[in-house]
């Protein structure tokens, strides 16, 4: 298993996702002789998992069953241990496209946080690109290094524990793209510019508050960035379900009662029916805001 390369079958040391049903899942590290508790009973790694294919159905000790899934960055985002607020796949997809990431891209990121975006970046820039990620919180930086090793992507990433606003990314003129998710991104724009390739590149800053965006846009303009563009993306997931609507009963004109059976309306009195159909129902609540994404281009001139 590696987050950047699909490998069969399930092996000792892999990180896999145990899927219990409808958004309920968790990650597990496969260990020879290890076992995992689920609400459906125990899963024994050696007999139930190792050697099986990803996507297999595994019956637990109590008779219930689960699916074992290959870990993608998106599944990881849904299941990773939170050390900070994390970026979700809707924002990540936009960041990836708008920063023009692809195999071979060199990317600088700060902060690493819980590594949600980092995993997605590494997946996209592999096998020839690289991620330089900076995290000012020491404990988090160490945990991230550990996770990257566990997920077999450590050759594609370098984690540094420092303050990007003070000391930058520790690299100069090598990045195609820079991503900032820090409280005061405007203080890091100079460092971002320095990290980008001489011939130019793209930068993105994620901020929850509009005031942060305003200061960042000002700093981007002052540093000569162009194509400055702020956007927001929201996800609405529809709940697909069967709907039953009662059909109103309008009664029957008195004189026609039980006389004219095959009338055009065919609505016998006191027999209200029900209309059935499938529908996508909008959720009562959804995520209303994660943050503003500000993108800009550094040109050669």
């Amino acid at each position: 298993m590696s987050f950047v390369e699909y490998r069969e079958p399930i092996q000792d040391g892999d990180t896999a996702i145990v899927f219990l049903g409808h958004d309920s899942m968790f990650p597990v590290t496969i260990k020879q002789g290890g076992q995992t508790q689920t609400k459906y009973g125990v899963i024994r790694h050696s007999t139930d998992l190792i050697g099986k294919k990803y996507g297999s159905k595994v019956t637990c000790s109590k008779g219930g069953w689960v699916y074992i899934l290959y870990p993608t960055p998106e599944l990881w985002t849904m299941n990773l241990p939170h050390r900070t607020q994390i970026l979700y796949s809707t924002d990540i997809s936009m960041i990836t496209m708008m920063l023009e990431l692809k195999p071979g891209s060199v990317v600088c990121e700060s902060g690493t946080g819980s590594g949600s975006l980092s995993h997605a970046i590494i997946r996209t820039v592999a096998p020839t690109g690289h991620l330089y990620t900076v995290e000012f919180h020491q404990q988090r930086a160490e945990k991230a290094i550990e996770e990257f090793q566990q997920h077999k992507v450590d050759h594609l990433v370098r984690v540094k524990n420092q303050d990007v606003c003070k000391t930058g990314f520790g690299v100069s003129h090598i990045a195609d793209a820079v991503f900032l998710d820090i409280p005061s991104p405007w203080e890091a724009i100079g460092h971002a510019k320095d990290a980008l390739k001489i011939e130019g590149g793209r930068v993105c800053s994620f901020s929850p508050c509009i005031e942060q965006v305003q200061r960042t846009c000002l700093a981007l303009t002052e540093h000569g960035f162009t194509e400055i563009n702020t956007l927001e993306i929201l996800l609405r997931v529809y709940d697909v379900r069967g709907i039953n609507l009662p059909v109103p009963d309008f009664g029957t004109p008195a004189e026609e009662k039980s006389s004219d059976a095959d009338k055009s309306k065919q609505l016998p009195a006191s027999q209200p029916g029900t209309a059935h159909f499938k529908s996508g129902v909008s959720p009562r609540e959804m995520v209303g805001h994660t943050g503003y994404l500000t993108f800009a281009t550094k040109s050669l001139f």
Partner: peptide
């Protein structure tokens, strides 16, 4: 319908909104 938090240096749309 979007509701907003408007506070000095901390303004943004509310984190939870109605889906429909």
């Amino acid at each position: 319908l979007r509701n907003y938090q408007v506070l000095p240096d901390r303004s943004h749309p509310k984190l939870v909104m109605s889906g429909g």
